[in-house]
Nucleic acid binder design. Structure first.
Length: 307
DNA sequence: CATCCGTGGTC
DNA sequence: TGACCAAGGAT
């Protein structure tokens, strides 16, 4: 900890201080945790995994109905693997980032073929599946299998930035310093660590939100470094916003919406109708084909992928 | 490491 | 009303 940047200048928190966070946050979680379907025992590891894919960059409220339909239709990985990838894309609906549906289908195939149909328990094996990165591997291992992993999502990063580091927001990209802090804060006991992971995430989702944080109900408000420092505003440039209108992403979304809702293959003219600018429209369609989200049948006819 | 990748709700 | 945000991953 010798550098002096805003990201890493925070001193390491002492282990004794770290332990002081655990019980208040876990007790708060025991009382206030939302009853989400993927947290119920019957969800299993597959349910946890499906929920984690859907929750990547997507709010809980929009995931809930799609999750229920998904699990009813494909209760095990092998069920999804046996169906066409285009059906996964269709069932994904308007959750956004439809490549996640394709990756989830690919992960289900890998699980069916290489793991005997069971979601692997090993972090490294999870990490090797398509669509599973550092966060999701840790989340599945922790939430589904009760293992001890630092689970660093946007909620946890914000809670740690405030409670431990005393700043309003974490850095744009996850830093080594944040990972070190997360490991320091992780309880030694495996079951407690798994509980802590879910609890600290829930705290960020429900109380310690990006804006309008509710310190009055926070179980660690009295120990929160940011609050004790007078809640100083974020220093430095504002993070770049996500522009959307007029981008290729918007065009891709419109094109894929037509294909999702069509039962039969779609003619070029139906796709041309969604966007006025032909160059961008063609680029977007090419991108969808390159990503495997759309299958060209020739003669300007397209459909969702059958394989 | 910055950028791309959807969608809809909120203040 | 437009900018910001929501349980990230791949390149």
């Amino acid at each position: 900890m010798t550098d002096t940047t805003a990201d890493t200048a925070t001193p390491d928190i002492a282990t004794t201080d770290a332990a002081a966070f655990h019980s208040p946050v876990i007790d708060w979680f025991d009382e206030h945790a939302r009853d989400l379907p993927w947290r119920r025992p019957e969800a299993g590891a597959w349910g946890v995994m499906v929920s984690e894919f859907m929750l990547q960059q997507t709010p809980v409220s929009r995931v809930l109905p799609v999750y229920e339909q998904w699990m009813a239709r494909w209760p095990r990985p092998a069920d999804l693997a046996a169906d066409a990838p285009g059906e996964a894309v269709r069932a994904w609906g308007r959750l956004g980032y439809p490549r996640r549906a394709l990756r989830l289908h690919g992960a289900a195939q890998a699980i069916a073929e290489r793991h005997g149909g069971d979601v692997p328990r090993d972090h490294g094996q999870l990490l090797s599946l398509p669509g599973i990165g550092e966060y999701t591997a840790a989340a599945v291992a922790s939430f589904a299998y009760g293992q001890r992993h630092a689970v660093l999502d946007t909620n946890v990063r914000r809670v740690f930035a405030r409670a431990a580091s005393g700043v309003q927001y974490p850095p744009t990209a996850t830093t080594a310093s944040e990972r070190r802090l997360a490991r320091t804060l992780l309880p030694d006991d495996e079951a407690t660590a798994a509980r802590w992971a879910a609890a600290s995430m829930e705290l960020g989702a429900l109380l310690c939100t990006s804006k309008n944080e509710d310190c009055s109900r926070c179980p660690i408000a009295s120990r929160c470094a940011w609050r004790l420092a007078g809640k100083p505003a974020h220093e430095g440039p504002a993070r770049r916003g996500q522009t959307y209108a007029g981008t290729d992403r918007q065009v891709r979304g419109k094109l894929l919406a037509v294909l999702r809702e069509a039962v039969a293959p779609v003619e070029q003219s139906a796709l041309d109708a969604v966007w006025h600018e032909p160059v961008q429209r063609a680029r977007a369609l090419d991108g969808l084909v390159a990503d495997g989200l759309v299958e060209p049948l020739g003669n300007g006819v397209y459909r969702l992928p059958l394989s």
